[in-house]
Simulated assay, not measured.
Amino acid sequence: MHDLIASPFLKSFVLLRPGRPEGIKLPERRFRELERARDSGATLPFWLMDAARARWNIEPAARPTNEAVLVRDASMFGHSCASWEINLGCDLAWEHCSPGQKRFAGLDGKGKRRVLLTLRDAGILWLRITGGEALIDPHFAVSCRLAHDLGMMIEVLTNGTRLSAPDILAALNAGRPYRVIVSLYGATAGTYDSFTRRRGAFKRVTAGLAAGIEAGLPLQLALIVTSQNAHEREQMLSLADELGLPHKECTHIPPPIHGGAESLASRSPAHLKPLERFAGCSARHACLHVDPHGQASICEVGRDEQIDLMTEGLQGLDRLPGCSNDNPS
């Protein structure tokens, strides 16, 4: 199993460590040196061992470069990050959820493998796995491990109800995400279970957080503040501090995928935070989105034109539309 990833990234090159968000920018000559060492079976160069020691406080063993470092080939596409809805199904039922109808339809294991291979070939380095609820997907463990083995840096979005399951903990330890974001919908069982319309949900989430912390997972909390749970906002902040987890408040609930306005009524006006003015984004240029059926679009919001990766494959990405006021930098 590789300890590090060396990869083209936009117009540069980076050295990354699975499970950690920070990296090292490489000069092109160093990246080319790693390519040659990979192909020849040469041992790790001393400069890389020194850099890994300084950046991550690790002591890489002197072994062949092609065993210690996954050196990724350049792609003809300029993409570097993607979000992937592995499934829209969910085990909770809060009524303003952005996926809308929580159906478990989607690709089988073979189809999901094909999606990941296509994303690898498109140059995707940073992969966000989401849903629905990602951890309840029957192919999550295999998909997470495959994404890691293909040289992707993984982020997982989850509601945390299955974090304590042994198979999930094993998958996350093997796949080594650099971030696991857990959505929090309240600070007490009464509010949480009412909000999610699932008895025992709060107990499962708190057990999952405890298990994740014990396993050393890189957890972060997304505090979902709405009109239904705003009275527990301070308690949610205190809970995050007690757990010692970084957190971010989410007050602007996005509209459902089908474009309805029901999420607007769930917002708490007193807690809405200012939104940044849109000044362009990297959709299509560097980022893309894939839904549970293998349909690619420029992002989670812009789904008007989709490319069927199952029928068109990698070449179909050439037809992704542009983004208004786009900025590829």
Rank of each mutant, 00 (worst) to 15 (best):
G41I: 07
F46E: 11
D50K: 14
A51L: 13
R53W: 13
I58C: 14
I58K: 11
E59Q: 06
P60S: 09
R63Q: 13
R63L: 12
P64W: 10
P64E: 13
N66E: 12
N66Y: 14
A68T: 14
A68P: 05
A68R: 11
V69R: 15
L70G: 00
L70K: 13
V71N: 12
R72T: 09
A74E: 13
S75F: 12
M76I: 14
F77E: 14
S80Y: 02
C81I: 09
S83L: 06
S83T: 10
W84H: 04
W84M: 06
I86P: 08
I86C: 08
G89S: 13
G89C: 01
C90V: 01
C90R: 00
C90W: 00
L92W: 08
L92T: 05
A93Q: 08
E95C: 05
H96E: 11
C97Q: 03
C97S: 10
S98G: 04
S98H: 13
G100P: 10
Q101H: 11
F104D: 02
A105C: 04
D108L: 05
G109H: 04
K110F: 15
K112W: 10
K112A: 12
V115M: 09
V115G: 04
L116Y: 03
T118M: 15
A122S: 07
A122V: 06
W126V: 13
L127T: 05
I129Q: 06
I129C: 11
I129F: 05
G131L: 10
I136D: 00
D137V: 01
P138T: 05
A141V: 07
V142M: 06
A147H: 01
D149G: 15
G151Q: 01
G151R: 03
M153H: 03
M153Q: 11
I154G: 04
I154L: 14
L157Q: 02
T161W: 02
R162Y: 07
L163Q: 02
S164R: 08
S164T: 07
A165R: 15
D167Q: 12
N173E: 15
R176P: 00
